[in-house]
Amino acid sequence: MEAKKITYSYVASLDVLESIREMLTQAGNDIGLSKRKTYQLTLAIDEIATNVIKYGYQEAGISDGFFDLIIEFKEGELIVSLEDTATPFNPIEHSLPTEEDLNIPLEERPIGGLGVMIARQSVDEFKYEFVNNKNRNIFIVKTN
């Protein structure tokens, strides 16, 4: 397949989550990615985009934020990069719940903290870079 790169820009509002899922589902279908892998990619990006919108922008008092999703089709890989100018946040430094944490009865569990774990575990590879004052979360899915 010919290498192809497409950039989509979004305002930092939770209203855009649904259209992001639709766009990614279409991208997954277009390249014949399995239904399950396509869903997991949309889930991973939904979780990180939510954090960027809610904590990176809205809670930081930035009302006119935006972010980009850059989709690259490469041989054997679908790569989606989420770039934002919100508060720097490295999900890889974020400590994940341990096996023990996940066995805590639901009535005693802390609320929250699952989004980053879900995002990291739902794609084949997850990377984070901070470049030119931008957060770049990179989601890689093997397509074959």
Partner: peptide, 20 residues
Amino acid sequence: DFVSSAGLRVLLMLYRQIKV
């Protein structure tokens, strides 16, 4: 058709309300 961690939180809150 879609449930994120925000959806899990709804299930968690309901579970707690019913469990007591």
